[in-house]
Design a protein around this nucleic acid. Structure first.
Lengths: 213, 213
DNA sequence: TTAGTTTTTGACACTGTGTCAACACTTGCG
DNA sequence: CGCAAGTGTTGACACAGTGTCAAAAACTAA
């Protein structure tokens, strides 16, 4: 029968999602590093071996988490893009959205940061990695379109450079700042500033770099 | 005798350095992640167990590598600071020096990046971690003094913000950009740019953000 | 029922970490 | 010299985690 294959496919997808849910729950408690396949399996009430039917690897599972994160981030960026008229304002809102994202979904953010670190494995298997790359791409595209919009509407100076490069630069910038703010909060405070302060400052500085002179 | 304790102390330090040498050699070949204590021990012609006499942990050993890296980076920054008259030019030179550093001493750079990621363990043991924090501090101080110099000599606009925050921001920025450029070189090229291009652009953009209007 | 297919698992092999009791070597002293 | 006390060094162990596989269990269709 054909219904049967269909049902199985659905169950397969549901299970797939459940495993990711379980992994996120574990990671939320102990972090992605300390998250073990055993714990994930226990949390999803499956045997550990079964995880390897649904995911290649532990990295593969993390890619799946990252994928969800990217989707969420994309939605936030899109919202930011449509909530503002001027290109610059939209880009600024994206910076803030990125920061919010890192705070509200730390596991997703961490998975994303990991993904950003690792060089792509090339055309090697890993369907989930590919999906992450595509997810990253669509986020970038939103940024690019807003930068172009800003150049047209005059809120961003025309000679900032090619929008594609500007988007990449801003992306790297935000990653760097957020990482600094989250991991070195103690040190920053010890110097008399605080993390929120640093981030505000960084966003402002970036806006200044894009605005016309 | 007192000479004997002295000699032993020297031998201890020599061995300490030799282990770090061995670790760097291994890491240069396979990367910090894949570097195993066993391989390091073999490379230093010692038993694995002895490594744990000289270093707490594998992380501790990586901190030691990081320390060397920070010292090297400090020297490069200091050179950059004294090679230029204007504060802005000095800061720009530091950006370039950071990039050079990441290219010429990838293992040191990677150790540094790892250190930057991990939150400090607090007052917990780990003498090497403390040394890294201090090393990071002295690098920051060089940046701060150059920013202040730039504000005085007019090459940097006075309202960029508190020099301490600006230094932190620039630091995070460079980390983000270099990471992006090194791990995602393939993707960047796929979009018609290249890594060197991106870095040039990023440095230019940063300079623009600091320069007076 | 039964034979074929798919799902699920326990048990295993492997790699790497960190620890410890015991071994080996130096050194100072009777 | 010989021999204790201290120091350096190591092999062997316990442990934790990953990924794999043959076989058990569950399901399906005749």
């Amino acid at each position: 029968m054909n219904h049967i294959a269909e049902r199985r496919q659905e169950e397969r997808e549901r299970r797939h999602a459940e495993i990711i849910d379980a992994a996120e729950a574990v990671a939320a408690q102990v972090g992605l590093d300390a998250m073990t396949m055993d714990e994930v399996a226990r949390n999803a009430r499956l045997s550990r071996a079964l995880l390897y039917v649904y995911f290649e690897d532990k990295p593969d599972l993390v890619f799946a988490i990252c994928q969800r994160g990217l989707e969420s981030l994309r939605a936030r960026f899109e919202a930011a893009a449509s909530r503002h008229d001027s290109g610059l304002a939209a880009i600024q809102a994206m910076g803030a959205a990125f920061v919010d994202f890192s705070r509200e979904q730390p596991v997703h953010y961490d998975a994303l940061a990991r993904f950003a670190r690792h060089s792509p494995l090339g055309q090697d298997g890993a369907a989930n990695e590919l999906a992450c790359l595509q997810g990253g791409d669509s986020v970038q595209r939103i940024m690019v379109s807003c930068i172009e919009r800003g150049i047209v509407d005059g809120s961003i100076r025309a000679n900032v450079g090619p929008p594609g490069l500007v988007a990449l630069t801003l992306w790297g910038y935000m990653q760097g700042i957020i990482q600094l703010a989250t991991t070195k909060a103690a040190i920053i405070e010890h110097r008399g500033y605080d993390a929120a302060h640093l981030i505000d400052h960084a966003l402002q500085l970036a806006a200044g770099a894009l605005a016309p002179r």
